[in-house]
Design a protein around this nucleic acid. Structure first.
Length: 257
DNA sequence: GTGACAAGAATAATGCCAGG
DNA sequence: CCTGGCATTATTCTTGTCAC
């Protein structure tokens, strides 16, 4: 694989590694990077000094992965252990009445002792945000823990919490991204052309295969739309359903007139 | 606080391929 | 050969980050 044109951003690297390290133990992460760089053709000696793994250990990892697959990234001499996310140490002296810890797929919020706790699935993002930010507003949780668990910056954390004072959860916490709103290849002209050809050919008994239609449309509209896309739009507009009924309807109308 | 940029979510387009 | 289901990639738009 030729990586000569790849540009590596130290800034992005730092950011992404900091994120990954919350989930993967450092040594496993470094082994993965070692193996990836090896696959991409870097010199083993150079990789070893970059990821801070002895050259021989790196070579062992490569051989083990080649032999045993993914499981070889983990030091199998050690008993399997669950990894708890790293939470930066508290800097403030203030005593908080609650604390959070991450366990499997849950965020557990402890109030005083383990008898009073909230267990919220990490996948319930809005719920989790709402509760943690509310506890932050009540001064029951330190902001660095909240921002760490929610994986947002402290500044943004403050921002969201402040907004929650005046706006409802739906305004502040629910994602309103809507994505693409209109077809960008198949515009009105193409659709008109598609319907016209489809109908004319259905009535006259010509083939309405997506291959034929895309060919016709691309010729008149000067486009390069794939037959698969044409099929997708034919289906989306429900045109398939009129293949049988349309000629019958035409016949019926002709008889009446 | 602002604006540029990256990342993430939703949807459109497309590749692949089993089955009619 | 042709269609359509599923998976992947592309595009658009919002959210979040960061430097100033």
């Amino acid at each position: 694989m030729d990586c000569q044109n790849l540009v590596f951003s130290p800034k992005q690297s730092k950011k992404r590694i900091e994120k990954a390290i919350r989930v993967l133990p450092s040594i496993i992460l470094r082994k993965i990077i070692f193996f990836s760089l090896y696959l991409l053709g870097a010199r083993i000696k150079t990789i070893a000094s970059l990821v801070d793994i002895p050259e021989v250990s790196g070579k062992t990892t490569i051989h083990r992965v080649m032999k045993d697959g993914i499981s070889a990234f983990i030091d199998r001499r050690q008993p399997p252990k669950s990894y708890v996310a790293h939470i930066p140490p508290q800097t403030q002296q203030q005593v908080f009445q609650a604390s959070v810890l991450l366990e499997d797929e849950y965020c557990i919020i402890l109030f005083g002792d383990s008898k009073h706790q909230l267990k919220i699935p990490l996948s319930h993002k809005v719920h989790l945000k709402s509760v943690l930010l509310s506890l932050l507003l009540a001064n029951m949780l330190p902001i660095n823990e909240v921002s760490s668990v929610l994986d947002i910056t402290i500044a943004h954390c403050r921002n969201l919490a402040a907004r929650l004072k005046n706006e409802d959860v739906t305004e502040v916490l629910i994602d309103k991204r809507q994505g693409q709103k209109k077809d960008y290849l198949v515009d009105q002209n193409v659709k008109a052309d598609l319907i016209q050809h489809f109908v004319a050919r259905t009535i006259t008994g010509h083939s309405t295969s997506s291959n034929k239609l895309s060919e016709l449309i691309n010729n008149t509209e000067q486009t390069n739309i794939s037959s698969r896309t044409i099929r997708w739009h034919i289906n989306k507009m429900g045109l398939v359903k009129i293949i049988k009924t349309l000629p019958e309807l035409i016949q019926a109308l002709k008889k009446k007139s």
